[in-house]
Amino acid sequence: MAIPYYIFGIIYLLALVVAVLFFVFNLYHLRRFGFFDFTALLVTTITGCVLLIVNIFAIVFLYQVPWLESGQVFNSLPFDSLMDKL
């Protein structure tokens, strides 16, 4: 059975949109209720940077993937060799 790689990309992007919305909602609450001091700014910046770095790493690791092609699900199962090792 073969699944196109881009399906997983789309699922990931959808999850990322939800994640960004959640981040924005939290940020909105901090700003809206008037307690956006230095600590809030620092934590928001750190969290935003980490989320950005995580996604940059994901892009770097997946840059060479042929997204329009399909990958085999069962022929390339890595778990058989893992079970042998365990």
Binding site: I3, Y5, F8, G9, I11, Y12, A15, L16, A19, F22, F23, N26, H29, L30, F33, F35, T39, A40, V43, T44, T47, V50, L51, V54, N55, F57, A58, F61, L62, V65, G71, Q72, V73, S76, L77, P78
Partner: peptide, 30 residues
């Protein structure tokens, strides 16, 4: 395929972990 799945799941795991932390901070701060 499993390489792609592994990388995406790991990235999503970190995103969720840090968003949970940020939400805890917002709850504490407010």
């Amino acid at each position: 395929l499993w390489y792609v799945v592994g990388v995406l799941i790991t990235a999503l795991y970190y995103v969720v972990a840090w968003l949970a932390f940020y939400h805890s901070f917002v709850d504490y701060h407010l």
